[in-house]
Design a protein around this nucleic acid. Structure first.
Length: 701
DNA sequence: GGTTACGGT
């Protein structure tokens, strides 16, 4: 352990707790970002994971690790195997066990933000992905565990620049970062089910190993270096559970040689890493290892060091291979999430297994029952609270609680997107009531126009996990929708639904609509959970906001800035700047200010842009913009200004926070305020000219 | 079969 070299860069733990994040954690993230920033960024598109999944075969040697989990980052794991909404991959452990690992897609997104794909060298891709190999506690992985290592992939070998990749990676340290996640429910069940009997190796090779890449399994196991015989997996496992403090086995000599051979490794060293290493060395947990652990570790170690290059494996991409549901899954801690929680029934583990792992053990009927689905008008409807993250498309309907304005995606195929939040209409209790849906269409008019209170049915939507919740995605061309307007009582159909007019489904929607509205009255729109959408007049100096504005003029100073207005006024906006609106002259404004004895009450806010300033090239006065995550600030004169992004500070440096508004309604609203303002100005000008032209002494005295 | 969007200060 001691002297272990830096084939990994440790970045310490990151908690991904979304809302309450410690300063220390933020700092670590930042440090990690800086660290990563040393490397050339890959073109994200190039890493398109799907493309790689046919060729990228990682064989990962997961070392015994210290603590509850260790995380290993590998890029492009994301699409390696997608099963029922979770990403899955299979790894071969030191003892030739095949581990089936799964984690929700959200994880990848999370990590992607912090660990952008790096290109260590032209033919080695690296980046995010996770394997978590807890050795001391129950094997488990947390969907929300963040990754804490960057791999020095110089250890990777490629037998062909464009085909398979093989790598031996050692995970040298464990990190315990957990947050309840959706999958935990499933895993908890598993744990419950398996707790009664001696715990088998959690990631053991499935009995029906042909499910998971037989070609990997068998030939691979032959060709792989035979690990030390570790016969009693179950014992190891249970032993591991007790050994919270075990350490990794890694051969220091070999590693150090490697390290010398590759001076670049030094670049990977970060203060965090060194510190971490040191503290670990000092408290070398190996000294506390039980005899058993010790023997395991020592027997494993030599092999790991002298691992021959892996044998090329030709196999189908994992995403065509179902995970085996008989494989005991990692155990999760008790979840605080009630999403997809089901009543305790004997078949629940089957259900969750199916839900999360895509097995074939459960009949369609059983799934339908477990999800309390019912067929309505030819559509199998899953109540929102029963929607689970799965590979299969689902149908549901619910009440719209709120929706975001339609925006146009800034990347991908640049489709229009509507985000709507649906509330369950089925009288079930104890389930998450809201679900987010993102519907994409290439034409804005193909998206539903719905308001809070409307019923919305979404047919054939996909699921994924995002931000610890299940999220629905409506893809253009395949996802259909029906809106029942609360206002008019009329239905609106998507193009695809228009063809089939599922009237029975409409009836059902209306029934639920009536029932809901009868029982709870006309529901008040639920406020969006998103960042506050504010008029400029509502901006508070300390609260980040989103706003929809018109560009008045572009910057005239050093720092790129756009002057914007939504034609509302704020006491902390300088009226003098309203001259940019070309409605009042400077003199007129001056007089107004004198009259009102107030410099504020202006309508124009300068918004300084600190990131993606290149997009300002495409922005000109008159444009309508949606600005997100604007940080308000009081300047020296105590006037409000907005700030978008701060490259050095941002945890999401690539996010673009300025969009042109696609929604005509929003533009109209701004236009209306503009007209009102112009009218008001015309009147006041007329008045003042009247006062001037009339001989009588004016009120300004 | 599933990018884009969402998230955070």
């Amino acid at each position: 352990m001691k002297g272990q070299k830096n084939h990994l860069v440790s970045c310490d733990a990151i908690t991904t707790s979304t809302y309450e994040e410690s300063t220390a954690s933020k700092l670590r993230k930042k440090q990690i970002c800086n660290l990563i920033g040393q490397y050339k960024l890959d073109d994200e598109k190039e890493g398109r994971l799907g493309r790689l999944c046919n060729t990228a075969q990682w064989i990962i040697k997961v070392a015994q690790s210290r603590g509850a989990m260790s995380c290993l980052m590998i890029k492009n794991v994301d699409y390696l195997g997608r099963r029922e909404g979770v990403w899955a991959m299979s790894v071969i452990t030191a003892d030739n066990q095949k581990l089936n690992l799964a984690f929700p897609g959200r994880w990848f997104n999370e990590v992607k933000e912090y660990f952008r794909p790096q290109q260590y060298n032209p033919f080695i891709l690296s980046g995010a992905g996770a394997i978590i190999h807890p050795s001391s506690d129950k094997l488990s992985f947390s969907a929300n565990a963040c990754c804490l290592y960057m791999l020095d992939v110089s250890q990777f070998k490629s037998d062909n620049q464009h085909s398979a990749w093989h790598g031996w990676l050692d995970v040298s340290e464990a990190v315990i970062v957990e947050k309840p996640s959706l999958c935990e429910v499933a895993e908890e069940r598993k744990a419950d089910a398996t707790d009664e009997e001696p715990q088998p190796e959690i990631f053991s090779t499935p009995p029906q190993s042909q499910h998971l890449s037989p070609s990997v399994n068998r030939p691979q196991q032959k060709s792989l270096p035979t690990p030390p015989a570790v016969d009693e997996n179950s014992n190891i496992q249970s032993d591991n559970r007790k050994q919270k403090d075990q350490t990794i086995s890694c051969k220091e000599e070999t590693v150090s040689q490697k390290s010398q051979a590759n001076p670049r490794k030094e670049e990977f060293l970060s203060p965090i890493f060194s510190t971490k290493r040191k503290s670990i060395d000092e408290n070398d947990p190996s000294s506390h290892r039980s005899q058993k652990q010790r023997s395991i570790a020592s027997s494993v170690e030599p092999d790991w060091l002298d691992t021959p290059a892996p044998v090329r494996i030709d196999r189908r991409p994992m995403d065509t291979l179902p995970l085996d549901t008989n494989t005991p899954t990692p155990s999760f801690k008790k979840s605080s999430s009630n999403i997809s929680e089901k009543p305790a029934t004997s078949n629940q583990s089957n259900t969750t297994a199916n839900t999360f792992r895509g097995g074939k053990t459960m009949s369609k009927k059983a799934i339908a029952e477990a999800q309390e689905q019912r067929t309505v008008g030819g559509y199998l409807i899953t109540p929102i609270c029963k929607v689970t993250c799965m590979y299969k498309k689902q149908n549901t309907f619910g009440r719209v609680t709120s929706n975001e304005q339609i925006i146009r995606a800034g990347s991908g195929t640049g489709d229009y997107k509507l985000t709507a939040y649906l509330e369950d209409v089925f009288p079930l209790q104890g389930y998450k009531p809201l679900m987010t849906f993102n519907l994409f269409e290439s034409k804005q008019s193909d998206l539903p126009s719905c308001k809070a209170g409307d019923m919305l049915a979404i047919v054939n939507f996909a699921t994924r996990e995002f931000n610890s919740a299940i999220q629905g995605t409506g893809y253009k061309g395949s996802t259909g929708w029906i809106v029942l307007s609360a206002e008019t009582g009329k239905f609106q159909f998507s193009k695809s639904m228009e063809i089939a007019r599922p009237m029975i489904l409409c009836d059902e929607m209306r029934t639920h609509f009536d029932r809901m509205y009868k029982s709870i009255g006309t529901p008040a729109p639920v406020e969006s959970r998103r960042r506050r959408q504010a008029k400029l007049s509502e901006v508070e100096p300390t609260v980040f906001f989103n706003a929809e504005v018109q560009v008045v003029s572009m910057w005239d100073g050093l720092q790129p800035c756009i002057y914007v207005t939504d034609y509302t006024c704020h006491p902390r906006l300088p009226m003098a700047q309203d001259v940019r609106l070309n409605v009042y002259t400077q003199d007129e404004l001056k007089k107004q200010m004198e009259r009102e004895r107030n410099e504020g009450g202006g309508r124009v806010m300068p918004v300084y842009v600190w990131e993606h300033t290149d997009i300002l090239q495409d922005i000109k006065a008159g444009d309508y913009l949606s600005m997100r995550n604007v940080r308000p600030k009081l300047n020296k004169a105590d006037f409000l200004e907005g700030n978008i992004g701060d490259k050095d500070d941002s945890l999401h440096p690539n996010k673009i926070n300025i969009y042109k508004i696609a929604d005509e309604e929003i533009i109209k609203a701004i236009e209306e305020r503009k007209e009102a303002y112009q009218e008001e100005a015309a009147i006041s000008q007329a008045e003042s000219s009247y006062q001037q032209s009339s001989a009588s002494p004016s009120a300004s005295q």
